[in-house]
Design a protein around this nucleic acid. Sequence first.
DNA 1: CGCAGCCTTGAAAGCTATCAATACTAGTGG
DNA 2: CCACTAGTATTGATAGCTTTCAAGGCTGCG
Lengths: 223, 223
Amino acid sequence: MALELLRSVPLFAGLEEEVLAEVAAWARPRHLGREEVLFRAGDPFRGFFVVCSGHIQLSRLASTGQEKVVELIGPKETFAEAVLFLDQPSYPVEARGLAPTELLELPAEPFNRLLDERPHLTRNLLGTVSRRVHRLVQDVAALTLQDATGRVVGYLLARADQAGQEGGRVSLPVKKAAVASRLGVQPETFSRVLARLREAGAIEVERERIRLRDPDRLAQFLP
Amino acid sequence: MALELLRSVPLFAGLEEEVLAEVAAWARPRHLGREEVLFRAGDPFRGFFVVCSGHIQLSRLASTGQEKVVELIGPKETFAEAVLFLDQPSYPVEARGLAPTELLELPAEPFNRLLDERPHLTRNLLGTVSRRVHRLVQDVAALTLQDATGRVVGYLLARADQAGQEGGRVSLPVKKAAVASRLGVQPETFSRVLARLREAGAIEVERERIRLRDPDRLAQFLP
DNA sequence: CGCAGCCTTGAAAGCTATCAATACTAGTGG
DNA sequence: CCACTAGTATTGATAGCTTTCAAGGCTGCG
């Protein structure tokens, strides 16, 4: 049920039940198949989204055909909220499903009105967008201050923290090429880095499951 | 005068005079010398800032001593607004003056209260932070999809648009090494790229002033 | 069983960083 | 007014990392 899910989304944390219900009433369920495009860069803004299950890839395309994955979005995460407030509301990236994915679409207009009535929601939204700024700044720094190995190690350690899985088990959310692009690396390089970490005894790789067998040794690969 | 300046800051655009006056009353003037540090990464958040004159460099330091300039802030621009809304309010970057700089510091607390009373201000703030997200996404994409030449050309063209100086005159806001770092390039590479563009007849360089003599030819250097 | 997609591995090329030296500028003090 | 100096920018040569191109291996599905 939509309401159930919304409650666990940080953006809606701490909201009164009635507000939550109102949001849920507006939310439009959407399904997205594997490799299916939700919107393209430049499309006019209609609303933003909450992921219920599955994974979304936000990417930017170069004129050469290359693409860079800007972000990978998983369950209970929102995306495109910041587009609401741009002067020219059009999506700056492309969104595509990486697997069969269930979404909720939150249309711009009713949400916009709700913001004016509910300061708490607005405050949450500012927090969400601000965290995104923070993460992007980290990404920019990582892309210039760290080499490929450093970025991969940083990603693994961050994911181990966040997932909180004991024993340092990390599982890549999507196919490796997408993670590689997210980290600003070619798939081949990503594979080679993992191989080197494995040979060094820092990790064990089995399919998309990675065990951080020696986090300290792993951390030594950071610049 | 502070009030005069605030009026021209996008963040405060369209606000009632009384609100503007209130903000101005709280604003604390600060002076920053060349290379003087305003705050370091990790310092507890006290407030955010408006640049009156001069230039600020926001940078992130690696453990190796290297630094990456995340953003260059000029007159009438604000920075660190997004830090207000992080769960753990501490500055994620270092701010340093690149020249003698006049600032206004807007302390967190009174501002926070004002936000709850003034939806318009909150809306502006969301717009400002969202634009920052947008720019950062562009930066991330540029760092991975374009080579050094592409990023320099992109920067020159963007600055020519924004400055709106006729005849395509661009002047670098600060010393070249800072601009280079902002673009994710070493100073030597930046110098070489400019030299190549000059030899190709696309630009003329004189000190920190650059003339875009042939924007079309310049654009051909983009990937 | 065979095919398609994904991942891995190898070799070579390209771009950028790094190290080093020189030119240049601006600000300082004689 | 000129010489000096420190900071800044340019240029050259080399090394290193990553990308690119190519081929082989693995897996899951029809």
